[in-house]
Design a protein around this nucleic acid. Structure first.
Length: 502
RNA sequence: GGCCCCAUCGACUAGUGGUUAGGUCAUCACCCUUUCAAGGUGGUAGCACGGGUUCGAAUCCCGUUGGGGUCACCA
């Protein structure tokens, strides 16, 4: 154990999407492993055949890789400890279960689920903790069932499960890397089912066997697993194995502080991807939910590389953390503000292409799809958008002539003389050479000054005509990027369509 | 309910016996400004409560309260 290469794991069940809590668990496992120059492994826990979802495994791994979490070993990457899918390891569980049976640490149980339920109800009615009544505990383990009876049931082909025999009154203790010492009394623990009647192991059994065989040094998982620690520890003891180190992470919470769940917002990483969040922001955000560098650091933005360099389990907090979308949004903006243009251009080209497929435009498709044009749009808009796709959707006027004008804004900015002034200014604009922000600005100021008017009387209407909306980047720069042709077209067309308020 | 975990501004958190309890998001005000952002400045806002220990507790101990998790042939 000492001096051993660190190995951590993320062990999802392939039942659907990747939960953001799962992403954080995977991330912490990954960061810790990488920090320690170790390996991060993905194992698929598909011991519940009924819950298995087609394609889930692929999707889980794909989403992790989207986030930048690439496994050193997994069903897809291979490795020396495979197979990495539990349903392909059934013979192993059977083999180890037999050992437990031989050593009297486990026993056959033929109780039906109806019996179990009945027993549970009875105990509940009596005010007792629902617990298996050990009806099938064999004589040699202190129970009442002769081995001949067990042999007979097996011979008859009766369905059975195998349960672990939890010793009666022992104290189970371990040192959690995040929480410190935690102690349990075995009398509160049920005789956990190890092998189900369909021949598959339960989570508890399979994960202990695999964690040992795959030689993980550290198990980093959600706090919801803390109560099952004694079962796992007892199994290690039965086998005479040294357990790995454990770290139980605090939970991710809904705004009402319950365990993060659907119905109170999005929980699937894919939901956030779909909305346009970047891997940079999601990873950064989720990493900070429970971990921080400490010691007066005021850094908020961390790259994956920095996280790897700085992460430590000692600095993971104990209390649950609310998944606060507002801060995520802020982080996303930070990344958009600082991301290289080329990268954004690449990202938004397909978005633009899709929009262009849906809608006609009077602009030159070639022009507005060019790197140069997109680069200019990005320069003007990067401090104004919340997501990359908004470079296209939120600033649609860079790609499509407006087909409506903000009513309130028109009402506020139009005076009876506005259209006349605009008509006159159009001639001035036609003459502006070159058609640059500076030239447009001085043209406008020179136009307005002799009339004793403020620039604002034209600025606002121009913006509305050019973009359809009352907000956006610097007017002059916007006009420059749009180009003379589009600007004049939009002004002329707009004046025909605007209903001047009386 | 039993067991287990947890507890600093609305949220994320720094703090490890002596601080005017700091930062970030959000929020409010002001500045900048052609709009919207961005940015700048400032403000509101917190140690759950009660006992100890100590010269001195957000920090250590106990209890209370509160919150959460978990009690399956699901993981």
């Amino acid at each position: 154990m000492v001096g051993q290469r660190v190995r951590t794991r993320f062990a999802p069940s392939p039942t659907g999407y990747l939960h953001v809590g799962g992403l954080r668990t995977a991330l912490y496992n990954y960061l810790f492993a990488k920090r320690m120059n170790g390996d991060f492994i993905i194992r698929i826990e598909d011991t519940d055949q009924s819950r298995k979802v087609e394609g889930a495994q692929r999707n889980l791994i794909k989403t992790l890789e989207w986030a930048g979490i690439v496994a050193d070993e997994s069903p897809e990457h291979g490795g020396n400890y495979g197979p990495y899918i539990q349903s392909e390891r059934l013979h192993l569980y059977r083999e180890y279960c037999d050992r437990l049976l031989e050593d009297n640490h486990a026993y056959y149980c033929f109780s039906t689920s109806e019996e179990l339920e009945e027993n549970r109800q009875l105990q509940l009615k009596q005010g007792l903790q629902p617990k298996y009544n050990r009806k099938w505990l064999p004589e040699e383990m202190g129970g009442a069932v002769p081995s001949s009876e067990i042999a007979r049931k097996i011979g008859e082909g009766c369905p059975y499960v195998i349960r672990m025999k939890v010793p009666d009154y022992v104290s189970v203790w371990f040192e959690d890397m995040i929480r410190g010492p935690v102690e349990f009394d075995s009398s509160t623990i049920d005789d956990q089912v190890l092998m189900k009647s369909d021949g598959f192991p339960t989570y508890h059994f399979a994960s202990v066997i695999d964690d040992h065989l795959m030689e993980f040094t550290h198990i980093i998982r959600g706090e919801e697993w803390l109560p099952s620690m004694p079962k796992h520890l007892l199994l290690y003891e039965f086998f005479g194995w040294e357990p790995p180190k454990y770290a139980h992470l605090p939970l991710l919470l809904n705004p009402d502080r319950s365990k993060l769940s659907k119905r109170q917002g999005d929980v699937a990483v894919e939901d956030y991807i779909r909305k346009g969040y970047s891997a940079d922001a999601i990873v950064n955000f989720v990493a900070m939910l429970g971990w921080n560098e400490g010691e007066g650091t005021e850094q908020e933005v961390y790259s994956m590389q920095e996280l790897i360099e700085k992460f430590s389990l000692e600095r993971v907090g104990k209390a649950g953390a609310v998944f606060n979308v507002e801060k995520l949004n802020w982080l996303e903006k930070q990344y958009i503000k600082n991301r290289p243009v080329e990268q954004i251009i690449t990202a938004i080209k397909p978005v633009l292409a899709a929009e262009l497929d849906k809608k006609e435009t009077s602009m030159s498709r070639e022009l507005i799809s060019s790197d140069r044009y997109l680069g200019q749009v990005i320069d003007l808009m990067r401090e104004r958008v919340g997501f990359e796709h908004e470079f296209v959707t939120f600033s649609a006027y860079f790609f499509f002539d407006p087909d409506a004008y903000e009513e309130e804004a028109v009402k506020k900015r139009w005076i009876p003389e506005t259209n006349d002034l605009l008509r006159e200014f159009v001639s001035a604009l036609e003459a502006v050479e070159p058609f640059t922000a500076e030239a447009i600005e001085s043209a406008l100021k020179e136009f307005v000054a002799p009339k004793g008017l403020k620039a604002a009387v034209l600025i606002h209407p121009l913006r509305i005509l050019a973009s359809g909306v009352s907000f956006g980047p610097s007017l002059y720069h916007m006009l420059e990027v749009l180009g003379r042709e589009a600007v004049l077209r939009r002004i002329n067309k707009g004046m025909e369509r605007i209903v001047v308020p009386v």
